[in-house]
Each structure stands twice: as C-alpha cells, then as structure tokens.
Write a protein that binds this DNA or RNA. Structure first.
Lengths: 199, 199, 199, 199
DNA sequence: ACTATCGGGACCGCCCGTTAGT
DNA sequence: ACTAACGGGCGGTCCCGATAGT
C-alpha cells in the first residue's frame, strides 16, 4: 500500500501548509525556506525535492487558491435563475472565508504584491481575473436580458463588483475587528444593487 | 547663504525619491539600502546620516503620502452642495492619479502589506482611513438629509465607496493597459449611484 | 541469458560516459552527481549502486585512461628499428587523439589537478608517467647506441619529449582552432630532432 | 598619512595573498570565500567590498601573474644580441620561480583549468599567450637573420619552446622532488638548441 | 538493480548598519 | 555633511550521500 507515496504527499502538504501560514504571517520575503522547513518538520533536502525554489511554492499556493476560486464560481453558477438573488447569495461564501481562513488572508496581499514584481506570477493572476470579469459580466448581461437589471455596461459593472469584493477584503485586513465582516459583503452588494440615488 | 543646508536638504530629497521609486518597483524587501544610495548618487553614510534605518525612510514616505491624502480630502470638501455631483467630481482626481503617478502606485501595496506586519505602520494607516470613512459617511448622511440619496446605512455605504476606489486601483496595478483607467472611476461611481436593479 | 547482468553493465557504462563528458566540460567540482545521473538517464540510487562515491568514478575513469595509455605505448614499441623515424611516427597517434577525442581532452587537466590534491590519484598518475619516461629514455639510449642520436642525457631528453607532448596538448586546449593541431606534433618533433642551432 | 587608504590596500593585499595560497593548495572550487577571509583575517563584508565575486579575485590573480610575466619578458628582451645565449639565460629565471614560488605553482594549473570552462578567463589567458608566441617567434627570426639559428618555422618553434616550459612545469607539479628542477630548464633548452639527431 | 525521498551541511552572495576618517 | 571600509550574519540554493521501498 504505497506507504512511500503517501508519506511523500504528506510531506509536500505539510510544506505547503507551513509555507502558507508563514507567508501570511511574515510575508514572502520575511519567510525563509529554513523557517518553512522547521515548521513543516522536514529538512531542506525534502523541500528542494518537492519544489524547485521558494518561488515555486508560492506559485503553487497561488494556483491552488485560484483553482479553488474557479471551483467556487462554478458551483455558484448553477442555480442562478434570479440574477440579483444569485449575486446576493454569493456574498455568503465570501463572509465565510473571512471567518474560516482569517489567518491566511494576508497571503492574498502577497499574491498581489508579488504580481507587480514577478511577470510569472502576474500572468498567473491575470488569467483567472479575466475569467471572473467575464463571469460577472455574463451575469449582468443575463440579468439585463431577464429584465431584472438595469442596462449598464456589463464589463464596467463586473469590475465594480470585483472592486467591492477586493476592497472589502483589504479593509478587513487592516481592521479585522472593526465591523461584522461576515455581514458586510451582503450589505454592500445590496447597496450596489439598489444604488444610492433616491428614486 | 546656508548653501550647506540646501545641499543637505537636496540629498535627503534625492534619497526619498530614490527610495520611493525603488520600493514601488522592487518592493520594500526587494530594495536594498545600497540600491537606494546608488540611485540617489550618494554613499551609505549619507543615508544613515539622514535616516535612522531603512524602515525610517519607509515610514517617512508613508507619512508624506498620508498627509497628502488628508490634503486632497480637504480640497474636496469645499463645494459639495449637491452630494451626488460632488461624488462624481471626485473621481476626476482619482483618474489623474492613475496617470500622473502610475509608477509610484505599487508602493501603496507596500504600505498596505507592511501595515499587516508592523503595528507602527498599521496605526499610521488606520487613522487616515478612519477619517476617509467618516468623511464619506458624512457625505452620505448629508445627501440623505438633502433628499438626493436613499436612506442607506452611511457607514456601510462609505465602505463601499472606498472599496470601489481601492479595488479599481488594485485591478489597475495588475493590468495597467487593459482599460481606460481614467474614465472608469467616474463610470463606476455612476453605476454605484444608480444601482443595478431595474427600477 | 544474463540479460540482467547486461543491463547492469550498460548502466555502468552510461554512467561512466556521462561522467567523463561532464567532468571534461564542467570540471570535477563543477559536476554534480545529479548531473551525471540525469545525463545517464538513471537515478542517484543507481549511481551509488555502481560506485562508492563521486571520487570513485573519477578514479575509475583515470585508471581506464592510464590503462589505455600503457596499451598505446605497447603498440608503439613494436617496430622501432630506426629510432628517429620511430619518434616521428608516434606523432601520428597524438594528432589523431586531438581530433578523435577533442571533447574529452579537458579531463586530462582534471586528472592532473586532482593529482596535486589527492595522494591516491597522484600515485596512480605518477607510475605510468614513470613508465613513459623510462620508455622514451630507453629509445634515446637505443638511438645513441645505434648511432642515430646525439649523446644527450637520455632521461632529460625523455622529459623534453614528454614536455613537448604535454605542452602542445595544453596549448591546444586553450585555442582548439588556432592551428592544425594534427600536423603540429610531427613538426615539433622534427624541430626537436634537428635542433635550433645552425650546424 | 592617509591611514585609511593604506589599511584598505593592506586588506586587499592580504585577501589576494590568502586567496592565492588557498587556490594553490585546495584549488579554486575547494576554496571557500569564508576560508580566504579567515586566512586574511577579515570579514566577508571586507571581501565583497574589495571584490565583486570569488571569480573576480581569481581573475585579478591571473592578471597580476600575466602582467608579471610580461614584465619579465620585457626585461629579458633587452640584452639579447646572441639569440641562443639569450634563450639559455632565460631558463635561469624559470628555475628560480620553481624554487621561490613552489607553493603557488599549482595555481597555474587552476588558471588553465578554469580557462577551459570560463570564457572570461579564457580570453584573459589567450591574449598574453599570443604575445609570448609572437615574442619567441621574433627571437627565432632574429636568430635566423643573424645566422645563429636554423631556418625553422618561427611560429612552430615558438610553440615548442612554450611547450617545453609548460610541460616541465606540469611534470614538476607531479613530482616536486624527483629531479633538480632548477637545472632542468637549462638542460632542456640546450637539448632543444642542439637537437637530437647526430650531425 | 533501481527509484523516490529525505537529511544535514556548506557555499556564495548580499544586506543592514557602524565606524574611522575627511 | 559625507565617504570608504568593514563586521557579522542571514538566505536561497545545491550537493553528497543514506535509507526505505519496489
């Protein structure tokens, strides 16, 4: 029963988890490979057996996160007969993330930051973001078609939705305890849906 | 007279500019003191004559940026008799920033990132953000009072506005050339004002 | 039958060839065991199954080269009734080597270098060199006896002959394409035979 | 009194001497920067202040050696009215080197070896060697003109002379105590001058 | 016979900050 | 006010070899 292979994957998982935590807590540059290894309880030899470089772990973490995002989007897409309702239901997921993975949140900032310096990471991030924009733009368009949404520019509206998500996340990073970050996404989307202007 | 003092001031300015550019291009950790000095055309001794440490330059840059933020906020506050119009006019400033200081933009990410690790920087950043939230919340409230805005939660709405600003900025960092980043803020606020739901 | 043994032998040969090439191209220290294995298309376990250490492969390559040297010496010894003619005919072999194994030539430098640091390799190299010196000294002595050569010190003359061979090889290593390295040995021995002084 | 500058150059000299000895004794790859620093009694900071890299020290040592060679050649060139006598008198210098700098000799092997791997070192070595060839070829030509030397191909003869020098040096490296390496160069050139063939 | 996994260690390069000196 | 020289130390990468497993 492939005890070998199992242990190998366990080691890799430990390394990835250790890296994720360290990156989140101390940042990419503030985390040394030695620290990751210590945290994972393995040697540097093991590290460089599983990953080509420190950057490679980072990229793998990024890709896993992006894959996960895609997965969540896919599951959401299913039952969205009423577009506005669909948008609102998505916010529940975001809220959960804030609570569940509060420790790992700062790593997203790392992703973004590294993307502005490292072309490889940049291209890895741009593509999924493009997909999200297309995804939301499609939702908007569907909403317009079914008559529940205003005839806004779908692409711009998609950007606004993403902006709200990203912006809330960043604000949450600065003051994790200043508000009810679980409810805020829902409320924000409601505001966005209803608009600020008095009808 | 005091040519001495002038030269000294110039050196400090050169160092600050060099640091700002380097931080923006290569990040805080990716920038070495030696690099900053090389860029400023002075020796390391000069650097440590003007600043206590690498962190000190960073903090000074942060403070200058925050001071500037407050300044901008003050100038905006002036003529806002029509709240919705006031919000829209502000977007012009944001658009300009995108164009004028496109090179320095990534340094905001640095600020944000360091804030999550360094309490000193965190507290330095939180305060102005508070002011911004209060400022926008007040605007919303005024708008509600004057009857031009819906009766939304002012604080949440303020967060949404800031989210849109921050979120657009971050997206602009990833793809500086994918859209007209000067016009997008205006369009986004318009969407936010009008809402997505069909009336 | 013994297909097992055959495969094993093939693996070892592949490793030796890979090592020889790598040592020649990147030097002993510049070559990692991993590189050799990659080149041979096997794993590191296979390497350490066939050889005790990296040094062991090196020693084996050295011994094979030395064995080959002795072999060549033996074949040369055959028909040397006319000593000067014999010396000249030998140069053909040297010229061939330059052409045939041009890629492997730098490994001789490795042998020499390691010999100055490793007593084991030193003693392995000194012995055949002794044999070469004795061989050439004997030739000189025979030539003097048969009246074709001047009455020079046979041992010194042998050293000179070897020096010319080694010296040409080293020069050839630096500039493989600057001269006709196949013809030069012949010409050099002719000069050595005839002398520089005007008779 | 520039105590500062003096100490700086002393430090650099110490580093160069330490490097030369270490390279000679343990080879280029076998010598760590830390070892050099320890030997020179300075820190790594000092090392990398004076040299860009480990390779840079090596290159500087090489260049100094080559410069020195050129210098010696130049001083020899002066009083060579009788070419054969001039050649013979040069051997004295070679003999001295064998004795004086016996410890540093293996570094020449390092030079040569690195030259086959590193293009920068290669080109640094080829040029002076070219000069030596031209120098000796000129001597031969002069000798032919003045009627003291045979009408041999000057370039080939120059290569032979260099070969003898290099070849003897290499043999001396293997067996420092097997012969009188001070007298051998002289004797070798005499053999080369007189030739082996019975007149 | 051969592989995959892993341990422990070393090395180069760099970096931050200090100090002696000008 | 500013320079050059330097100390001490860390960080990523790689490397040799051993071991467990197939």
């Amino acid at each position: 029963m492939t005890t070998q292979q199992q242990r190998s994957e366990e080691t890799k998982t430990h390394l990835l988890q250790a890296a994720e935590l360290s990156f989140a807590q101390q940042g990419y540059d503030g985390t040394s490979v030695a620290t990751i290894c210590r945290r994972a309880g393995v040697s540097k030899g093991a590290f460089y057996h599983h990953f080509e470089s420190k950057q490679a772990v980072f990229l793998e973490l990024l890709n896993r996160w992006l894959d996960n995002l895609d997965l969540q989007l896919e599951t959401m897409r299913i039952d969205t007969d009423d577009i506005p309702q669909g948008l609102l239901s998505m916010t529940g997921v975001v809220g959960e993330v804030f609570q569940t993975a509060a420790d790992q949140l700062p790593i997203y900032l790392e992703f973004w930051r590294q993307a502005t310096h490292d072309p490889q990471i940049l291209s890895a991030m741009i593509q999924p973001f493009h997909r999200y924009r297309v995804f939301f733009a499609q939702m908007i368009q569907d909403g317009v078609a079914e008559g529940t949404l205003e005839a806004v520019n779908p692409d711009s509206a998609a950007r606004v939705i993403i902006s709200v998500a990203v912006g809330l996340l960043l604000q949450g990073l600065l003051e994790p305890r200043s508000t009810d970050w679980e409810a805020l996404p829902h409320e924000s989307i409601q505001i966005l849906l209803g608009g600020l202007l008095k009808r």
